[in-house]
């Protein structure tokens, strides 16, 4: 394994989301060790690495589903601990590996927890997730896994997040559904949404992002362009 690759040139505007020397352990085992990373606004940045590298744990620190013991996570320069967690989680949405839809219809799923929502807003989010407005009246349990994942993406988008965290969003999907969701991620990225994408698939990271973070055993071992990342880990399978 190669040593740490120097980060690419800094964005003058600074990262919208940043991890500053964060460490996390679980059950006495170190999961993340002194991780520092920044994510640029309006870009899709991948977090890659082998299974058990700490990718998901790092992602969960960004919306406080995990609380690092040391270090700080900053959103637009401010410590996220200063934010109400519910406010933070609307600004930093999250898509999980396996889509979870709640009981009821798609409309109720999208509007879940919102004080008020119009059908126009909900239909707009569905369309942004590549689903027609007619899906609002569908039963959530009648969706395919791919459709359910897109409903989950729409459910996050309704909250108008600044950042969307995506944890292996295609790994539970078949090939066709994966392609649809990948195209959707690319569209979201080009629309100016900041996306942090966890994937174990370097080819997918290359298709969707220009920059990535390489994690191994809870530490950052590479950060920069996809070429840099591939070079950082020569043993990585090239697909």
């Amino acid at each position: 394994m190669a040593g740490r690759v120097p980060p690419g040139s800094p964005d003058p505007a600074g990262p919208i989301l940043a991890a500053d020397h964060i460490s996390l352990s679980r059950g006495g085992r170190t999961v993340l060790h002194d991780v520092t990373a920044g994510f640029q606004q309006g870009a899709v940045t991948a977090i890659v690495g082998p299974s058990g590298a700490g990718k998901t744990s790092l992602l969960r620190c960004f919306n406080r589903l995990e609380q690092p013991e040391r270090g700080t996570v900053r959103l637009e320069g401010s410590d996220i601990r200063a934010l109400d967690p519910t406010v933070l989680r609307r600004r930093v949405g999250m898509i999980f590996q396996t889509p979870v839809v709640f009981e009821g219809g798609v409309r109720a799923n999208l509007a879940y927890g919102l004080e008020q929502s119009s059908d126009d807003d909900l239909a707009g989010a569905l369309e942004a997730a590549g689903l027609p407005a007619s899906f609002l009246d569908r039963a959530a349990t009648a969706l395919s896994v791919g459709q359910a994942q897109r409903v989950c993406i729409a459910r996050a988008l309704v909250r108008r997040p600044q950042v969307l965290l995506m944890d292996e969003p295609t790994s539970a999907l078949d090939v066709d559904a994966s392609r649809v969701v990948e195209a959707l991620i690319a569209r979201l990225g080009s629309s100016g949404l900041t996306v942090v994408l966890v994937t174990h698939d370097l080819a997918q990271a290359r298709r969707l992002s220009r920059r990535a973070l390489l994690l191994s055993a809870g530490e950052v071992v590479g950060e920069g362009s996809m070429d840099v990342i591939e070079a950082a880990w020569g043993a990585w399978p090239r697909t």
């Binding site: 589903l65 609307r90 999980f96």
Partner: peptide, 20 residues
């Protein structure tokens, strides 16, 4: 847990997420 965290990640209070 996956269902509860999906609810929490949408920015609802723990009390609301756990209600069902």
């Amino acid at each position: 847990l996956a269902d509860i965290e999906s609810r929490l990640a949408l920015g609802v209070r723990l009390k609301i997420a756990l209600a069902p």
